[in-house]
């Protein structure tokens, strides 16, 4: 359930403390008049992987940028690791690592220097052993003396992750971590995110790739036109909104669904060559054997069958369509 939305705006001091991130009634209007965020309420627990999903311009990056201090916040409150991001910005920001969407690196600085720089910037004393560990974890150790301009795009992204992790943050923000990244690196990135979670890091990511959210996130928030339209556990979301489909490719085309099969929600497609059975995932699958037996009784033969679950993508498209 969306805990945040069901709660009344909590009075100051009564905010839940044991959360990695708490956002309350956050608004943001840009100088251009654009209302980028409207009354955002969100709770993310420690150790969670939370995915923010939404079309371009929905407000994902604005939300992350406000939490991290890149954009001035509008009305509302944000606690990161229990610290107010405005009044206790030092403690709050020291708890946060940010990997922004755009690849932004220096050109002539070495991997080692830029990562060490980040550690210092975030107020941590030098610790070459830890920098080494981070570089090794990200397969950057061999490149430590390379200038950043000599690295490929994928390597640069790893460097940015290393920079975000080197000050040992509790919360990691990944803004579109796999945009423009090849398949192999994307897999590695996913593995890394899971590994970080196992180490206790809370991860909040934004993504366009719905399979990414589906695969990795414990919970998903859908944001559209600056509104958080839904926050749900990934499984629940899939169960609630996901539909299963059984597609039978028939030997002989049918003109109409036989009367004996009327109690099943069936449709005919492909000029009567395909019989499609749609059902909720929550509904017991026990109906399928029954359907197949009835088909057999009717003498309807099929040469192939194919079952699929609607992806988060379809769910998402439906949601966004519905709300606009």
């Amino acid at each position: 359930m969306n805990e945040a939305a069901s709660e009344n705006p909590a009075p100051q001091g009564a905010l839940p403390g044991e959360r990695a991130l708490v956002v309350r009634n956050l608004h943001k209007r840009f100088a251009s008049g654009l209302e980028a965020l409207r009354d955002i309420n969100l709770d993310v627990g420690y150790g969670e992987i939370f995915a923010l999903l939404g079309p371009n311009g929905a407000g994902k990056t604005t939300l992350i940028s406000i939490i991290c201090g890149l954009v001035n916040p509008g009305p509302g409150r944000i606690l990161a690791n229990g610290y107010d991001v405005v009044r206790q910005f030092r403690q709050a920001r020291a708890s946060i690592g940010l990997v922004p969407q755009e690849l932004a690196t220096d050109a002539f600085v070495s991997v080692w220097s830029t990562v060490s720089f980040s550690r210092g910037l975030f107020g941590k004393p030098k610790n070459p052993a830890y920098v080494e560990k981070v570089l090794r974890d990200l397969s950057l150790w061999d490149k430590r003396d390379n200038e950043l301009r000599t690295l490929s795009g994928g390597m640069k992204r790893r460097v940015m992750i290393a920079k975000a992790l080197v000050h040992e943050p509790d919360i990691l923000f990944l803004d579109e971590p796999t945009a423009g990244v090849d398949v192999e690196l994307r897999r590695e990135m996913w593995a890394l995110v899971r590994q970080l979670r196992d180490q206790g890091v809370t991860i909040i990511l934004t993504t366009h790739y719905i399979e990414e959210a589906e695969d990795m996130a414990d919970r998903i928030g859908v944001i559209n036109h600056g509104e958080l339209v839904l926050v749900e556990e990934t499984r629940t979301l899939m169960d609630k909104l996901g539909r299963r489909e059984l597609r039978l490719h028939l030997h002989q085309p049918l003109n109409a669904v036989p009367a004996a099969l009327e109690r099943f929600p069936l449709t005919l497609e492909g000029n009567g060559h395909e019989l499609v059975y749609t059902y909720d995932t929550q509904q017991a699958d026990g109906d399928i054997p029954e359907l197949l037996r009835r088909l057999d009784e009717q003498g309807i033969e099929f040469r192939d069958l194919h079952s699929s679950q609607s992806s988060l993508e379809e769910i998402f498209v439906n949601l966004v369509k519905k709300r606009t």
């Binding site: 890149l70 920001r93 922004p100 690196t105 975030f122």
Partner: peptide, 13 residues
Amino acid sequence: FLGTIYEVLAAPV
């Protein structure tokens, strides 16, 4: 210009 300013703005400084 390079965009690396993000890190300074997000840092506890």
